[in-house]
Simulated assay, not measured.
Amino acid sequence: MKLQGILPALVTPFDAAGAVDHQQLADILEYQLKAGVNGFVPLGSTGEYYALTNEERRQVLKTVKTVVGDRGTLIAGANGSCTREVLEQVRQTVEAGYHNLLIAPPYYALPSQEELVGHYQAILDEFSDINVVLYNYPVRTNVEVGFSVLEAFKDHPRVVGIKESSGSVLRAVEIGHRYKEQYQLSCGSDDVAFDFFMWGASSWICGPANCFPDQIVDFYRKFSSGDLRGAQDVMRTLFPVMASMEEGKFIQKVKYGCELAGFKAGNARMPLQPLTPEEKAAFRQVFEASQR
C-alpha cells in the first residue's frame, strides 16, 4: 500500500440538528477530488471519531467508500481506549470494506512501549487482511510511538508506515534515517510539512486540506516536480492560517474554514465549543489572505 500525496483527514459535517450530514460530506469529498487529492482518511481526530456513535461511524465509512470508489486511497481511523475496543473498531471498519487503518496508541490507559507493541501485535494477529499505519500523536494520547515500537515492526509486511503528528522535525529526520526502507513517513504536523517532505515524507495526512485543498495539492505537485522554491512559497502563504489552527481549536477552525470555502460543516460536538465572533474574524482574515 502506497502512502503517497495529499490525504485529507476528513471532517465529519453535522447539520443544524447535530446529525451527520452525509450530503455535505459527499460534496466535500468531490471538492477535494476535483482539487487533485490522492485519497482520504475518515474517522481521525479531525473527523471527531471520538464523538460519534458506532452506527454513525459505519455510515460515514459507507458514504466515503461509496463516493470515492477507486478514485483514491482510503485509510480509516480505528481507535479506542483499550485493545478490546480497538479490535471492535477494526472489525467494523474491515466489514465496511476498508483494509488500510490508521491506529494510534490507546488513550487514557498510558501503555508502556512494551505494552504498546503487544497492542499492535494483537491487532495484526486478529486481522490478517489489514495494513496498519502507526499514528504518533502524543499530545492527544500522552503516549509516544517510540523507536522501540518502530524497531519491533520494522520487518512486518503489513505495518507500512507512520503518521507523525508530534510536531518534531527531529523525529521525521530520525525515522527517515533509520527506517527509510521499512516505513513510509506521512506528515501529520501541518505547519512543518515542507520540512517533513525534505526529510523523506511521501504523503501528508492533512486536516487543512478540507478547506483549501487547491493550495495544498499545488504545494505537493511543486515539491514532487523538484520546484522547491515554489513549494516553499506556497507554504509561506499558508503558514499564517496553519499557525492559527495549531494555536488551538483546530477542529473548529477546520470546520469554519469549510464554511468559508462554501460548505456547511456545522459545529464540533461538545465538549468543543464554537468559535467566538472575535475568533472567527481573526481566522477569516488569515484564511482569506491564504487565498490570494
Rank of each mutant, 00 (worst) to 15 (best):
P8R: 05
A9I: 09
F14W: 00
A16D: 12
G18E: 09
D21R: 07
E30G: 09
Q32N: 11
Q32D: 04
G36V: 07
G44L: 06
T46D: 11
L52Q: 05
R58E: 15
Q59H: 14
V60K: 02
R71S: 00
R71K: 15
G72E: 06
L74T: 00
G80W: 15
S81G: 14
L87W: 06
V90C: 15
V90Y: 05
R91I: 08
V94S: 02
Y98I: 02
S112E: 03
E115T: 15
L116A: 02
H119M: 13
Q121V: 15
A122T: 12
L124Y: 03
E126M: 14
I130M: 03
Y137P: 05
Y137M: 12
T141P: 09
N142C: 11
S148M: 11
A152M: 06
R158C: 12
V160F: 07
E164H: 00
L170A: 13
R171S: 11
H177G: 13
R178F: 14
R178W: 14
K180I: 15
E181W: 12
L185G: 01
S186L: 05
G188D: 03
D191T: 14
G200W: 06
G207I: 01
D214R: 12
R221F: 04
R221K: 13
M242W: 11
I251Y: 02
C258T: 03
C258M: 13
G266I: 00
R269G: 04
P277G: 10
K280E: 04
